[in-house]
């Protein structure tokens, strides 16, 4: 098997900022193990000579002119905010520093 551990899933959940319950971690560990086992099949044909494709259509140099367009109004910008203080979004205190 691919050997996905519960510790790994817990770590992935913290990277993905999802507060998973122990039950969810347990079931996702099984799911992820099976899925990874299945999708690792891609490695069979992904040889070094094959280039990677990130975009289905090979476009390059798609640019916008440096011209100001109207922004949202402040009310529109904040219309979906769970919490606000004046014209700013309000969030609980930040634990870690970046």
């Amino acid at each position: 098997m691919s050997g996905i551990t519960a510790e790994q899933v817990a770590h992935l959940a913290s990277l993905a900022r999802i507060d998973l319950s122990p039950e969810e971690i347990a079931s996702l560990t099984i799911d992820l193990g099976q899925i990874v086992e299945s999708v690792k099949k891609v490695q069979e044909v992904a040889t070094p000579d094959v280039p990677a494709t990130s975009h289905p259509m090979p476009l390059t140099n798609v640019f916008r002119d440096d011209i100001v367009v109207p922004s949202l109004t402040v009310e529109q910008a904040l219309s979906g905010a769970p919490d606000r203080d004046g014209d700013k979004f309000r969030v609980p205190p930040i634990l870690e520093e970046d």
């Binding site: 916008r64 440096d66 011209i67 100001v68 367009v69 922004s71 949202l72 402040v74 910008a77 904040l78 004046g86 014209d87 700013k88 979004f89």
Partner: peptide
């Protein structure tokens, strides 16, 4: 004059959240 990835004005010292759009928000 505008931001890196949208047409909102790149200005210093404007009222909070006045230069925003679906992309930069």
């Amino acid at each position: 004059k505008t931001k890196m990835f949208c047409g909102c004005a790149n200005e210093f010292g404007q009222g909070a959240n006045t230069n925003t759009c679906p992309t930069c928000l």
